[in-house]
Simulated assay, not measured.
Amino acid sequence: MDNQNELFPPATSELAKKKAELAPENIEAWRNFSKTVFKAGALDEKTKQLIAIAVAHVTQCPYCIRSHTSQAMRKGVTGEQIMEAIWVASEMRAGAAYAHASIAMDEIEKKS
């Protein structure tokens, strides 16, 4: 299924080059930051990619989902691990909505 092009422009190397040319220092800093963040450290690269996939689903970034899923699979992450990470992200997003109900409850209590 490749319907993403209907809502979002494709991420092409040409577009990336044009964006980089408009802010070369910023893109260089971003690339260095990204390389540093995703290097193995206390967490291995596979774990970092699974975290990125989960966060990408919470932030709803289609480009990040595609990129980090692809990178994770190149690192040896399985489809099952990816789906499990997505379910963790789903639970956290739903849990946050429920947790924020306390704010609404606080307002309800003030009006009672």
Rank of each mutant, 00 (worst) to 15 (best):
Q60L: 04
E25Q: 15
P10F: 07
V37K: 02
A89K: 02
R74E: 15
A42F: 08
P24M: 12
T59F: 06
M92N: 06
A104L: 14
A101N: 13
P62L: 04
E80C: 01
G95S: 05
Q71T: 10
A42Y: 07
D106C: 03
E91C: 11
A54T: 03
I51W: 02
Q49F: 02
W30Q: 09
M92P: 01
Q4P: 00
H68N: 14
K111Q: 13
A72C: 03
V55N: 04
E25G: 14
T36F: 10
D2T: 07
P62D: 07
N26E: 13
R93P: 00
A23H: 12
A94R: 07
Q71L: 11
K35Q: 13
T69G: 07
V55F: 01
N26I: 14
E6L: 07
H57C: 04
G76D: 08
S90N: 13
A104P: 00
S70P: 01
E91V: 11
K18G: 05
A101F: 15
T59E: 10
A54S: 10
V37C: 10
S13N: 14
K18F: 09
G76L: 03
R74F: 01
A20P: 02
C64R: 06
A56Q: 03
P24A: 09
A54K: 02
T59Q: 07
Q71K: 14
A52K: 04
P24D: 11
A96E: 11
C64Q: 04
I27N: 07
A29N: 11
K19Q: 15
A29Q: 10
K48M: 03
S112A: 13
E28R: 13
T47K: 09
T47L: 09
A94D: 02
R74C: 04
Q60M: 06
N26V: 15
V58S: 12
A72Y: 01
A42N: 11
N32M: 09
I65V: 14
Q4G: 02
A52E: 04
A11Q: 12
K19A: 15
V88W: 07
F33T: 12
I108N: 08
T12E: 07
K111W: 07
N32E: 14
L7F: 13
A54R: 05
D2H: 12
A85F: 06
A101W: 13
W87D: 10
S34T: 12
V37Q: 06
I65R: 11
A40I: 03
I108H: 10
G76C: 05
V55M: 10
T36M: 12
A72L: 01
N3E: 13
L15N: 09
K18A: 15
L50T: 01
A56K: 03
K39P: 00
I65N: 05
K18S: 14
R93Y: 04
E109A: 13
S67Q: 10
W30T: 05
M73P: 00
L7Q: 12
K39A: 14
H100Y: 10
M92Y: 08
L7T: 10
K75G: 01
S102W: 09
E107T: 06
H100Q: 10
E45P: 00
Q81K: 03
P24H: 08
L50K: 02
Q4C: 02
A56S: 15
A54W: 04
C64K: 04
F38Q: 05
L7W: 09
G76V: 01
F38G: 01
K18C: 04
N5S: 11
I27H: 07
K46E: 08
A56I: 01
K46W: 00
